[in-house]
């Protein structure tokens, strides 16, 4: 995935079954953000794989004051990349069988 300066990782191991996964997001490189970034630490949250969109969660983070409006896109993309990888891994494990 592209280096957006925002890192998103699983906050707990994915068992491949849960509808909601726990993710952890933090800024690795504030220089890649457009708006002024106030160091706030790693943000842990749950993400409903089938119900939510990464952009929607990014917007909530903007509304909560973690990021500037102009960075909603880059945060959304970072979440989207990680979610795509998780979904791909899940599909692959289903294809591989038990």
């Amino acid at each position: 995935a592209e280096d957006t300066g925002v890192r998103v990782e699983l906050a707990e191991e994915d068992d491949g079954k849960k509808a909601a996964i726990a993710l952890k997001l933090w800024v690795e490189d504030p220089k890649k953000l457009k708006g002024k970034y106030k160091e706030s630490g790693a943000i842990e949250f749950t993400f409903e794989l089938e119900k939510e969109t990464p952009e929607g969660v990014a917007q909530e983070m903007v509304e909560s004051g973690f990021f500037h409006e102009s960075d909603a896109k880059i945060v959304g993309k970072s979440i989207r990349d990680r979610v795509a990888l998780i979904k791909w891994r899940r599909e692959r494990s289903v294809l591989a069988g038990p």
């Binding site: 890192r7 706030s40 943000i43």
Partner: peptide, 27 residues
Amino acid sequence: LCAAQVVHSAGRRFIVSPVPESRLKDQ
């Protein structure tokens, strides 16, 4: 280290905790 902070937004819970320095770039 600071304790984790919890921020609620429209029904979602964000838990904020310090990032280990080893996970940051340019440190």
